[in-house]
Design a protein around this nucleic acid. Structure first.
Lengths: 194, 194
DNA sequence: AAAAAAAATTAATGTACCTTAAGAGTATTA
DNA sequence: TAATACTCTTAAGGTACATTAATTTTTTTT
């Protein structure tokens, strides 16, 4: 399978591209392979790339000075991921991105993305849609974090992201929903969840 | 002051528009005045408009079946606001939007926004930027909610949004940072905050 | 200006979730 | 295959925050 098939079908949901446009777009992409536990982005370093997952699983997490991890997001095949804060503001990143398992990804640099926007305005539409959907996801998460107790946040995570729930550890899910692994364990025990 | 001055300067930060484009864009806008406590959007109803605040203050909040309020966002002059989930998915809205004080806003319907995107692609860029910044805001909020205790979330809110903090009640701030008004009160007492 | 309603505060009690610690299970490395 | 490390679980004790309720202060309505 060609390394660009998945990303082109991802974009194809929203845009129709000519052969020339495809060639221009793919010329900006770089293939990157990472092994389990490898860092794709280190907190505090610049984040001038956005990544698309061909396969595997990534996890983005913020680390406090006290060493507390908060999982910002997971990404599996067909997902886009970056430290959107650092990427947007050309600021030191506020999260680590690490490989939960061996993964293959395509990277696009910020300057290349800007030239893509300039030369092919339809990519503005694509990223508008991408950003809008990401905004929706994050706002739903905020609402759920504010309004639901931990057991319901856990159930919601598993039902919303069953593929991710299969691939990542309970500890990582706990740090996404905002509880300790120990407490998630008691939640699951009460639910009769094996 | 013309009702379109503020929105044009808001857009002008990112786009240059011709007189014709301005005329086309403003022809899609409707001026709306709401008085304090008036509902701009009722939860469960369709949300097919996006709003821009000329002046005043709005608050978006989600209401659970148990009657618990969670403030999703505030908006003051020069801010855009809508139920982005319902707007994007043409679904019943998941929040109320209400006037904290008398406010003047401009509304743009979803069909009009789509025709704007079709006819003037530079508006795709503008909304891409808008959505991207909103995504950044929400992601930062998620990280802070996960990693910081309530007193720090309160301090951060006040330092980040001093104008909003002046206009809204403590109860509303409490429901934004995810604590009860009573607990926010004890936080403030401990800080010697009058 | 009086009356009513809502916001803010304080305090007592309660609980969801955290911390610490230890042991069992599972995966990774030598 | 053994050794090491990490995840998951269980349980005791602790704390941040919620709930309830009463009082004061501020805002809104009449």
């Amino acid at each position: 399978m060609m390394p660009y098939d998945l990303i082109l079908s991802n974009i194809g949901k929203y845009l129709t591209l000519t052969e020339t446009e495809i060639a221009f777009f793919t010329s900006k992409l770089r293939l990157k392979e990472v092994v389990k536990k490898e860092l794709v982005l280190r907190q505090n370093e610049r984040c001038d790339h956005i990544y698309f997952l061909n396969n595997g699983t990534l996890r983005a997490f913020h680390l406090t000075t006290q060493g507390k991890e908060s999982t910002v997001m997971f990404a599996i095949a067909d997902w886009w991921i970056t430290d959107i804060y650092a990427f947007t503001n050309n600021a030191p990143s506020i999260m680590n991105i690490t490989a939960v398992e061996d993964s293959q990804l395509l990277s696009l640099s910020y300057p290349d993305l800007e030239s893509l926007w300039d030369k092919l305005p339809k990519f503005e539409k694509f990223f508008r849609i991408l950003m809008q959907k990401a905004y929706v996801r994050e706002q739903l998460r905020s609402i759920q974090n504010l309004s639901l107790p931990a057991p319901e946040r856990y159930d919601l995570f598993v039902s919303k992201y069953p593929e991710i729930a299969k691939k990542v550890t309970k500890k990582q899910i706990a740090s996404y929903i905002g509880v300790t692994p120990e407490f998630l364990s008691t939640i699951r025990a009460k639910q009769g969840d094996t």
